[in-house]
Each structure stands twice: as structure tokens, then as C-alpha cells.
């Protein structure tokens, strides 16, 4: 019961934080709110029994993402968002409301939160819960799947992160010497 209470409270806080983020125009405040958003998400993951995900989110989401955004803010030296001119300010709101309503209609079919008989708990997962110790000798099932059963997927993930890192270096690495030229958008494509 206390779990459910914490869960509902944190989710409500998340919703409030997200709305505050949309309404603010100060970029620094928005980024700090995003840090709070990530931390609340990490807390929710703990309540929902996902410890591994929680500390990844706390370290990578709340820590590194927020830091990267602050670094960007320092580089671009812009601290205020301009109010959108808005040719049709109601159009995004209509799109979002319609999409949201369709998705909420979709949730009427989904089984209740934490239902032990929900389809995700009855088909594939029991195999990993029962066999992972015998198959891999790792007590932590998340680690067993991540590094052993799906080791190649994790290798693919490393490739993605490496590609992103190389792309960031290509975009920003040659910045210093080109500071004076204004039209050099195409330069980053040539290597």
C-alpha cells in the first residue's frame, strides 16, 4: 500500500515538473527542472523494483544529460527562450489532445498495474527468472540477460554510443580554427 502511495505521489510530481518545464522560458531553469525530472524518474524506478535501471537513470539521465545540456548552454550563450510567434498556436494543442485521447482509449485494454496474470509476466519472463542462475551463474537477472544472453545486443549498443561519440567529435572537434568563417555547415560531412 505504501508503495502505491509513493508511486502515485512521485508520478504527480513528475507531471507537475513537466508542465513547469513547458511554461518556463529561462533555459537554465528548464535544464535544472529536467535534472529534477530525471531524479524523480529514478526514484520511481526504485519503487517499481527496477534497481539497475534506477541507478543508470540517476547517473546517466540526471547526471550526464543535465551536465551536457549545461555545457551546451555555456557554449551557445543564450539564456532566454523567445516566446513563439505562433501562426496557429492552437494546432499543436489539438494534435496533442487527439493523440493523447487515442492513447488513453488504448489503455482501457491494458491489465492493471502490478497484475501477476498480465501477459508480460506469463510468457517469456518465467524462463529467465528460473533458468538464469543455472545457465549463467549470475544472481542478478538483469546483468545475466544484458551481458550473457544478449551480449551481442550490448555490443551493438556500444557501437551506437561509439558512433555518436565520433559524430560529436566531428561536429565540435574542428570548431576552434573555423570560428571566423560563417558558412561551413557542409564541412562536417566530408570525413
Amino acid at each position: 500500500m505504501i508503495d502505491l502511495l509513493i508511486n502515485v505521489t512521485l508520478l504527480t510530481f513528475l507531471a507537475i515538473t513537466a508542465v513547469a518545464m513547458v511554461r518556463m522560458t529561462d533555459l537554465f531553469a528548464i535544464i535544472m527542472l529536467f535534472g529534477i525530472f530525471s531524479l524523480l524518474t529514478a526514484g520511481l524506478f526504485v519503487v517499481m523494483d527496477a534497481a539497475d535501471v534506477a541507478f543508470t537513470e540517476a547517473a546517466v539521465g540526471a547526471g550526464i544529460s543535465t551536465m551536457l545540456m549545461l555545457a551546451t548552454l555555456a557554449l551557445i550563450k543564450a539564456h532566454q527562450e523567445k516566446k513563439p510567434l505562433g501562426r496557429r498556436p492552437w494546432l499543436p494543442l489539438v494534435v496533442v489532445t487527439v493523440t493523447g485521447a487515442a492513447l488513453v482509449y488504448g489503455t482501457t485494454d491494458i491489465s492493471n498495474f502490478g497484475d501477476p496474470l498480465a501477459p508480460p509476466h506469463t510468457h517469456v519472463a518465467p524462463y529467465y527468472i528460473e533458468q538464469s542462475m543455472a545457465d549463467t551463474g549470475v544472481p542478478n537477472m538483469v546483468t545475466a540477460v544484458l551481458a550473457s544472453y544478449r551480449g551481442f545486443d550490448t555490443l551493438g549498443e556500444v557501437a551506437v554510443v561509439f558512433t555518436a561519440g565520433v559524430a560529436v567529435l566531428l561536429l565540435l572537434g574542428s570548431r576552434r580554427k573555423k570560428n571566423n568563417s560563417t558558412v561551413d555547415k557542409e564541412d562536417s560531412n566530408d570525413s
Binding site: 527496477a50 535501471v53 550526464i64 537477472m141 561536429l171
Partner: peptide, 20 residues
């Protein structure tokens, strides 16, 4: 544990794309 693994991967990839 399976959604946990998926999301663990997604968080790390998400930060990489954010950085880009």
C-alpha cells in the same frame, strides 16, 4: 527482468543521441 534490460540499453543510447 526483460523490460529492465531493454530500458537500461535505451537510457544509454538516449544519452548518446542527446549529446549528438
Amino acid at each position: 527482468p526483460l523490460p529492465h534490460v531493454l530500458i537500461l540499453t535505451a537510457i544509454v543510447v538516449g544519452v548518446a543521441t542527446t549529446a549528438l
